[in-house]
Design a binder for these strands. Structure first.
Lengths: 205, 205
DNA sequence: GTTTTTCCAGTACGATTGCAATGCAAAAAC
DNA sequence: GTTTTTGCATTGCAATCGTACTGGAAAAAC
């Protein structure tokens, strides 16, 4: 076998360039030549590693999704109490530094793309349900712990606290919504964190 | 003066076509020829009413924003109690029918566009602050009413209820996040409504 | 009637697009 | 050494892009 190279690494490098172009100028500016130039390679090489533009886009879409997933799993310190653990998750979803701003803008562009091309999105994007279920479980366990500490003679559980699963759905959707509002400058990062913390306070007992 | 036509109506008709194309195939597919074909007019006419493509895009961007704004003001029955009034607002932001799905997909595409071209977005998009302030006021008045009905000897206000302004920020961001999750099929409309209602229950005492 | 101004269809042009095809360097297989 | 397979640079092509431009129909002004 002749000259051997790491295909996945090459594809990832090209996908990185695509993400940077998308974050800087939008998906409309993503072309084979633009991406190749951003990656510092020739268009022929891009063509060598991706059958066509759609394949390149699908790979990049999956790459952003996996990067977010990696960040979430990396920020999973199971030693922390449930509430802090969930807070760690959700903060990772907010574009609070430059790196995540780039990823966030690219993710926003891909969201619009996914809403229109649901076929590729469905084939490439991960199922959001496990994460929701995990957060719902953390909420449940935290509330059980809180009820135990309140003692047997205490007041019954307060009404008006949302059920765990809707609360988990709301937390994730809220983080996503706040993230896009930060990117579009509709909301300051400080207000976003304040709103998210308030939401955490009500979701956990 | 020669043949007189309603410029604004013509522009709006073209912008409608642009929105439909963007909702169906994304902003990448928005070209002068595509939009003209969708509107059933010639590209020459599009050029006559818009100096260039950017002007057309900016007009369409403003058009979606105004349409959402109109829907919100139209669904403002001040006779209802505050909570129902806010619920009416937020439900209008969810893409629960075909018409709003089209608008929502276009709005999603424009959001990604606005995050990248913040100059045009800043010049065209309305300030989100008044709506947030209005919702925060409704929350305040509803809580004051609730406290009065609870009587003077009752328990003090429960802790862990978020301050009105962060609650308003959260409600709007949550509606936006749920809306995009519905469009990307990450979340069912039923779960979205459930999560939003739960959020309303906690925001209003 | 003529004139003038607006409205818009049509065409043309240079740039850019996605993609196919060609060709060659380099490294493993022999 | 030769052969063979892979990795990639380059070029070319048809299609589409945004935009400039031309020309004429139509209606108000005269």
């Amino acid at each position: 076998m002749p000259k051997t190279v790491d295909h996945h690494a090459r594809r990832t490098r090209i996908a990185d360039a695509l993400i940077r172009v998308a974050a800087r100028q939008g998906l409309e500016a993503v072309s084979l030549r633009q991406v190749a130039a951003e990656a510092g390679v020739s268009t022929g090489m891009v063509q060598h590693y991706f059958r066509d533009k759609n394949a390149m886009m699908a790979f990049a879409l999956r790459a952003v999704a996996e990067r977010v997933q990696d960040r979430l799993e990396q920020a999973r310190p199971d030693t922390l109490p449930p509430k802090e653990s969930v807070r760690g998750f959700l903060m990772q979803l907010l574009p609070l530094d430059g790196e995540r701003a780039v990823e966030g803008k690219a993710a926003l562009a891909f969201q619009a793309h996914a809403a229109v091309h649901s076929d590729v999105a469905g084939a490439v994007l991960p199922d959001p349900e496990p994460l929701r279920a995990h957060i719902a479980d953390l909420i449940r366990s935290a509330r059980a712990e809180g009820a135990k500490q309140a003692g047997a003679g205490g007041a019954p559980a307060r009404s008006k606290v949302p059920a765990p699963y809707p609360a988990a759905v709301a937390l994730l959707a809220l983080a996503e919504g706040l993230g896009t509002q930060i990117l579009t400058r509709e909301c300051s990062p400080e207000d976003a964190v304040t709103a998210l913390d308030a939401q955490l306070d009500t979701a956990f007992g």
